[in-house]
C-alpha cells in the first residue's frame, strides 16, 4: 500500500512529477490502431494508457432495447487487472459502472443518434494503465474512435481534469494528487460549440477557485481539441493513401 506523500507541491512550486501547477501531462493520440472494430483510438497521457474500440451502428441485441427513432449508445469502461499498482479484481466494480455511465453521457450530446434509428453504437473503453484522470482520457479517445468509425457527430468531445492541491489550483491531476489533494474536477466540453457535456466535482472549491479552475479546464480542453484534430487528420492521410501505412508498403509488390 502506498503512503500519503508529505508534500504534493514542493517549495519551488513543482508538483511530485515535476510539473508546474498549470502544466498538463504530455498526450499522445493514435486513431485507427485496431482492425476488428469499426473505429478505434489509443491515448497515452503521462502514465495513462487507454485503448478504445467502437462498433456500430449495428443491429441491436437484445432486441427489446431498440429505440424506434434513434440509436442506442452503450459504453463500457473497464480497467485491466494490471492497470493499477495493486491487482484490480477483474469483476466490474461500482466505480467502473459509474465511469461507463459518465463517459456515455459525456459523449451522447456529440453523436447524432437520430441518423441511425433502431441500431446500437457500442463503445468499449479499456484502461490498460491508470494514473488519475482516466475518465477524461477515455472520453478524449472515445470521441476519436467514434469519428474513426464514420459516425456522424456534432463535434469532438475534449476533456481534462483540474483540481486543488495544497491550496493551489492545478491542472490534469495524477493519481496521488487525486487521492490526497483537496479537490478534483473533471470537465468535458465540445469546444467549437462552446458546450459543456460533463462536469463533476469531488472535494471542495470556493466560488472564486471554481471559476479559475473551470477557466483552466476550458483552456486545456481547447488544446486537447487541437491534438484530436491533428490525430484525425493523420488518420485521414492514411485512409486516403496520401501517406501509406507501414503495413501497406510491405504488401506492395
Amino acid at each position: 500500500m502506498q503512503k500519503a506523500p508529505e508534500r504534493l507541491i514542493d517549495e519551488n512550486g513543482f508538483r511530485l512529477d515535476g510539473r508546474r501547477p498549470e502544466e498538463f501531462r504530455p498526450i499522445k493520440l493514435q486513431v485507427g490502431i485496431l482492425d476488428n472494430p469499426d473505429g478505434s483510438a489509443f491515448i497515452e497521457q503521462g502514465k495513462n494508457k487507454i485503448i478504445v474500440g467502437v462498433y456500430g451502428p449495428r443491429e441491436i441485441h437484445p432486441k427489446h432495447m431498440v429505440l424506434p427513432d434513434r440509436a442506442v449508445i452503450r459504453c463500457r469502461y473497464r480497467m485491466a487487472p494490471f492497470s493499477t499498482e495493486e491487482r484490480k479484481n477483474p469483476a466490474p466494480s461500482r466505480r467502473e459502472i459509474e465511469i461507463s455511465k459518465v463517459i456515455r453521457e459525456a459523449l451522447e450530446p456529440a453523436v447524432m443518434p437520430e441518423y441511425y434509428p433502431r441500431t446500437v453504437i457500442d463503445i468499449f473503453v479499456e484502461a490498460l494503465q491508470c494514473d488519475g484522470g482516466t475518465r477524461c482520457a477515455g472520453i478524449v479517445a472515445a470521441s476519436l474512435a467514434l469519428a474513426d468509425a464514420g459516425i456522424s457527430m456534432r463535434e469532438l468531445v475534449s476533456a481534462c481534469s483540474v483540481g486543488k492541491v495544497e491550496g493551489q489550483i492545478v491542472a490534469d491531476l495524477f493519481d496521488l494528487e487525486d487521492k490526497y489533494g483537496e479537490a478534483d474536477m473533471p470537465v468535458a466540453i465540445m469546444p467549437n460549440l462552446n458546450k459543456v457535456t460533463l462536469i463533476q466535482m469531488d472535494g471542495k472549491l470556493s466560488r472564486d477557485e471554481f471559476e479559475r479552475a473551470f477557466e483552466m479546464a476550458l483552456d486545456g480542453c481547447r488544446k486537447i481539441r487541437n491534438l484530436q484534430a491533428e490525430a484525425l487528420k493523420r488518420r485521414c492521410e492514411v485512409l486516403t493513401g496520401t501517406e501509406m501505412p507501414e503495413k501497406g508498403s510491405l504488401e506492395a509488390h
Binding site: 456529440a110 469519428a147 456522424s152 457527430m153 456534432r154 463535434e155 469532438l156 465540445m190 469546444p191 467549437n192 460549440l193 484534430a229 484525425l232 487528420k233 485521414c236 492521410e237 486516403t240
Partner: peptide, 8 residues
Amino acid sequence: QIVTPGEL
C-alpha cells in the same frame, strides 16, 4: 480538403 467532425 480533408475535414473532421465539428470543423467549421
